[in-house]
């Protein structure tokens, strides 16, 4: 955990889709400025639910979410973005019926008018693949290009925290490498990053710290290196997935 006050923190966070069915069951986490944290855990552990709760898409039952010094627990998703929290969902994370340029314009709309073109231009500079075909319908993009567009869309507003839910799902190993390379680059530019991943080894290789979520609670937490060496963790969560990790 970082020494300085965390940029993003949750306290005893309980949330879920229905009132009497908590999926996230008391999560305390704190992410320091500039950190790259990986969120791991078995399928169905509640990783997506946790990050969707933080982003304002799943009702909070109890507990709090704070961003910087501000409590944002109950804010609707569109206001959280304005406070610097950007989220890339696991699936359907681009507007397929809009063009690449329109996807970026939609996201830029909350910026002051005079900064929109500049911020869209910055994304095109960072993702030349997108700049090459601004008028193309996003639904026609390849898997890797879609993820790039989803990340570009999230970065438009210059967020302080970027949360990504399994951006590598369904991508070829080479493309996953590309995407992860971009994410480290973005993190190095100062954007605090939280990455949900199934691909454990690849994730631990780029993240500085990892949280392992099991049945809606944080079961293990530590530096990426320490988790890789931890025999219990390795056996429980990494061993089973090693084959998958190698294949991906």
């Amino acid at each position: 955990m970082s020494e300085a006050a965390p940029v993003l923190a949750t306290k005893s966070l309980v949330s879920g889709y229905e009132r009497d069915l908590p999926i996230v069951r008391g999560v305390d986490m704190a992410v320091g400025a500039g950190e790259f944290v990986v969120l791991l855990g078995p399928n169905g552990a509640g990783k997506s639910t946790l990050v969707k709760t933080i982003a304002g898409l799943v009702p909070v039952h109890s507990g709090t979410v704070t961003l910087g010094s501000r409590e944002i627990t109950a804010l609707p998703a569109h206001l959280k973005v304005r406070h610097g929290l950007a989220f890339v969902p696991q699936t359907e994370n681009i507007f397929a019926s809009l063009t690449i340029h329109e996807n970026l314009q939609v996201a830029a709309n909350i910026l002051p008018r005079e900064r929109r073109a500049e911020r869209i231009g910055a994304q095109y500079a960072m993702f030349p693949d997108l700049a090459a075909r601004p008028g193309q319908r996003a639904g026609a993009l390849s898997g890797g290009q879609r993820q790039m567009l989803a990340v570009a869309r999230a970065l438009i507003v210059e967020p302080s925290v970027l949360i990504l839910d399994e951006p590598s799902a369904g991508l070829s190993p080479k493309i996953v490498g590309d995407v992860f390379e971009r994410l480290s680059e973005i993190n190095r530019q100062g954007v605090t990053t939280i990455l949900v991943e199934q691909n454990v080894r690849a994730a631990l290789a780029i993240g500085s710290r990892a949280l392992i979520l099991v049945e809606g609670r944080i079961a293990h937490e530590g530096s990426a290196a320490a988790l890789l060496d931890d025999p219990i963790v390795a056996e429980l969560y990494l061993g089973a997935r090693q084959a998958g990790g190698a294949a991906a």
């Binding site: 982003a55 939609v106 709309n109």
Partner: peptide, 17 residues
Amino acid sequence: RSMRAVSENQQLAGVAG
């Protein structure tokens, strides 16, 4: 554009601000 975005995916529209 916002109307088309909401018509396609309300959750993503919220996330996009």
